[in-house]
Nucleic acid binder design. Structure first.
Lengths: 196, 196
DNA sequence: AAAGATAAGTAAGCATTACTCACCAATCAG
DNA sequence: CTGATTGGTGAGTAATGCTTACTTATCTTT
């Protein structure tokens, strides 16, 4: 059996300090010196646990995405309808993003600009998330819930784009958002269409 | 009358060099030394024309967005139908992003993570673009083209999100994209719905 | 065309930053 | 006791973004 020991206190303190700093600053303007200071450790220790500053970002993202993924996969088992599953994903993702704004900012704004992100393990979890959505769409087309006219991959793009943009402004400017109402509205548009 | 002189050659060279570098590297990993070298000027000159490295990014973005905005506003005058206008915006934006991948990357990936971007003049043009979309949606609701059930701002979010995500993967991984087909598909989903 | 003013461009240096490395201290198995 | 593993330190270093004091070219105006 794997040892599964609790991580060393220094590592935890570094992650916590980093998350705290990310609440008010963007990644690039957070310095290693400040992280170490806030965590109450030395700069060198950061590099004992993380390959570099970005690795810290990716690991922190991964911690979150694990929980996110699990929540999603559990919730979508509550129904057999593909459209219902997709609605759950939209609502849950939205709630998750707005409830964890730091993570949302990391995922939607910070990591994507760095090419090496797409080779890190956190990205692999995003791919799995995207894959889940695609599978549900395909299933929905098979059992005639979803129109044969739509390209599954394009529908996925629309769904992912809608989720992200639905909360982006609110995350950027720290505004409140009524996720349920917005989520219902998004679903109405995507599944029933905006045309009258 | 405004002087409207051509900008000094140094400034042009810096912008060009920067754009060239942005084709293969992300903003943060491009150094001022390399920009200056590629442009054939000294590092100091960059700071004569641009407040800092980010200001260079913003100015280059603004140059592009001016052209983008103009194209959009001209094209949407070709029809009176609100839905047609929105379709034109979706198609034009998509084509514009995929045809100018460097700018798309700047706009969709690089600038947003820095808080000060939202106070720069390039962002003001984005706001105007978003405002245009909202106005069209409201008009569409008024003349019964668009369902009264949809919240205009949410519809805008879905449209913007769909546009961005529709080309994001292709931009990130430099894949080809058939903008027309994708655009038609996106419009079908947003206006007629994905449900069968 | 000379003088004065402004714009374009330079070269060197400064402060900060991410990152490294040699070392210390405590724990614990053999 | 010994020696190895683990958690942690602190003084560096190269490189980067940015500043500044300066020179040279270009334009205006008389």
């Amino acid at each position: 059996m794997a040892k599964q020991r609790t991580p060393p206190p220094g590592q935890i303190k570094i992650k916590k300090a980093f998350l705290e700093l990310m609440k008010t600053k963007d990644f690039h303007s957070i310095t290693t010196a400040v992280i170490a200071n806030q965590a109450g450790v030395t700069e060198g220790l950061i590099y004992k646990y993380f390959r570099d500053k970005k690795d810290l970002l990716y690991q922190v993202l991964e911690d979150y995405f694990n929980a996110f993924q699990e929540t999603i996969e559990t919730k979508i088992q509550s129904t057999d309808s593909s459209i219902e599953k997709l609605k759950i994903i939209i609502a849950t993702s939205l709630a998750s993003y707005t409830g964890n704004r730091v993570f949302a900012r990391i995922l939607l704004l910070e990591v994507r600009s760095a090419p090496e992100y797409f080779h890190c393990s956190a990205y692999r979890m995003v791919q799995r998330y995207a894959r889940t959505i695609l599978d549900i769409i395909r299933q929905g087309i098979n059992n005639n819930e979803i129109s044969r006219e739509v390209d599954p991959k394009v529908l996925r793009k629309v769904i992912l784009g809608a989720i992200e943009h639905a909360c982006l402004g609110e995350i950027l400017f720290n505004r409140d958002i009524d996720t349920e109402t917005v989520s219902d509205n998004v679903c109405h548009i995507i599944f029933k269409g905006a045309q009258s």
